[in-house]
Design a protein around this nucleic acid. Structure first.
Lengths: 136, 136
DNA sequence: CATTACGTTGACGTTAACGTCAACATTTAC
DNA sequence: GTAAATGTTGACGTTAACGTCAACGTAATG
């Protein structure tokens, strides 16, 4: 008994902050397969969930093909164990990558703050004409 | 008195696991400007550092133009304070993004492990023909 | 009922960051 | 000294994930 709300393409587009073109593109790629009313696409809550999965994958840097695999896992009778293990492996790699990115980011922030300090010091020296103490 | 070791293009390529084409491409884009011996490129430790900065930026998802800015910060007389602040802002956004990615990843891992369990349960039931207890 | 908004398909364009290949010069290794 | 490796420039190709039209039909609104 899942909610059987339906959505128009623009509903989903605005909800998720993407364009309708994008949604149709996902369909072209086999990630979505909405019902139709005539030629008009009708999306159901299952489609909405799939879209969510796609966007989550996207944030994590997955390709659409990889997201397609993920969707497959929710789709009964489409769960391939090898594929599943591949995805898990990919996630672990992603975790490693995220750790690397964190450390990269830390270093970069340090560098930037140092550059900022240098800049401010240079500025201070320039405006105060090498004064060491601020006069009272 | 910085180390004045020099490098050939292939030295750097193998050290950093990139292709020579990539290095030349970075030069085309103005990120590197090695000395030349005739037509052959000669890289110095400063160039090597720049390359490191580029690759760090790349890991963090910076564009080459953004890495160019970063290089500029190390290059005296090229430090623009606005640019610096933009970079800091970008780093903060990146941090937020990384946090989002972490949480996305956690959820995804949970999903995958659940899918795995389901799969194994299904498998066990199939092979044991619905036995509940293992015979002694 | 006219206009505006929204929907459709199909084709082609875009961007970043290289890959690939040609055609050639120069080193390096044996 | 000759073959194999490495270097060069220049041009064109590639890929993913859409954007941007065009040309058209349908729906909603005042």
């Amino acid at each position: 008994m899942s909610k059987n709300k339906t959505y128009k393409i623009s509903d989903l587009a605005t909800e998720f902050g993407i364009t309708t073109r994008t949604i149709r593109f996902y369909e072209e790629k086999g990630l979505l397969a909405p019902k139709r009313a005539g030629s008009t696409r009708i999306y159901q809550s299952a489609d909405r969930v799939k879209l969510k999965l796609i966007l989550r994958g996207k944030r994590l840097g997955l390709t659409l093909d990889e997201s397609l695999d993920i969707i497959g896992l929710y789709d009964p009778a489409h769960g391939n164990i090898d594929q599943l293990h591949q995805l898990i492996t990919k996630c672990q790699e992603k975790r490693t990558q995220l750790q690397q990115q964190y450390s990269d980011l830390e270093v970069m922030m340090l560098d930037l703050r140092n550059a900022e300090k240098k800049y401010q010091t240079a500025l201070a020296e320039a405006t105060s004409s090498h004064q060491t103490k601020i006069p009272v």
